[in-house]
Design a protein around this nucleic acid. Structure first.
Lengths: 156, 156
DNA sequence: ACGTATAGTTGAAAATGTCAACGATTGATT
DNA sequence: AATCAATCGTTGACATTTTCAACTATACGT
């Protein structure tokens, strides 16, 4: 078989299963796009020794909202103990700092350092490129629509 | 503090971080909706001793497309070894059967048994209800739009 | 016939997720 | 003021999932 014919057959069989009913299932579509996107995102962020998780924490630490670890756990749908590990690592790299909560001294707020902000600025560029790559088949209007629908599904 | 005031404050703080830039990130929105949806889906499927994974395999096995394990792995974004475990379990429960591929005897196609089809029919009802629950804040037209956009992002 | 590539399988290692306990602190109740 | 239940971050144990490298059997081009 020639290389070209092989490629054609692969292309033909690769998406053969799209016809199945599960391709109408939002949960499945979400999982699949998320899986593919994670690979692209993590590859883009690897240059800065970040992963999706640590990148998310860094963004929130840099938001000016001074989130507590508990809030990070709730918002990122992670167990509090995972936040500890993520913040530990970012703190060790001097990208974020922990501070005791103002009203509640049990809580610790996580804020980005200047170094963290700088790194984030660079990483954000790479993340935007990754997003474009993942959503390459959508035009700008469709991307906005998709974001709006996802946000509405999450927060009404 | 009264219970009502507590609830109000919780509601106020719960989504406080939505204001952060990451709420514009498709990767994050996908991850969060997927995380929440998985919990609802798995809870709905638990009644049938299925999870999202085994449910997906069962649907594809029941599609009439006679997918091979390799195709399942590619389509579900899973490692081939995980397909082995999933099919092993479904086969043990007599919900699917393995058959040697027709042209390629290395490959094994996975097809649903009558028992598998029956169980799937019931599980699909539960899965539809779960999906409605997850997407409760979207109307029917928006759900169709969301599905169309996700499919386009995945397959163009 | 031969060498290369691929399908499924197995098992080990690494990463992630889940959960229960603990000290410190808080806020409500007495 | 003293107490009691609840919450925050942390730790460590345990389960699940992911990732990867072998291996056998089969397929395919040369």
């Amino acid at each position: 078989m020639t290389i070209e014919a092989q490629d054609e057959q692969q292309a033909a069989t690769k998406d053969r299963l799209v016809a199945a009913a599960i391709s109408q299932d939002v949960g499945f579509l979400l999982a699949k796009l998320h899986a593919g996107g994670s690979i692209v995102n993590n590859r883009a962020l690897a240059e800065f020794d970040l992963k999706e998780r640590s990148y998310s924490v860094l963004i929130l630490a840099n938001s000016g909202l001074e989130p507590t670890q508990r809030e990070l756990a709730d918002f990122l749908s992670l167990d509090p103990s995972q936040i500890v590990a993520l913040v530990d690592e970012l703190e060790k790299r001097k990208l974020v700092a922990r501070a005791p909560g103002k009203q509640d001294r049990r809580a610790k707020t996580v804020t980005a350092t200047a170094k963290g902000s700088q790194l984030l600025a660079q990483a954000a560029v790479a993340a935007r490129h990754a997003e474009s790559e993942v959503l390459a088949t959508l035009d700008d209007g469709e991307i906005l629509q998709l974001k709006a629908l996802l946000r509405k599904a999450l927060w009404g």
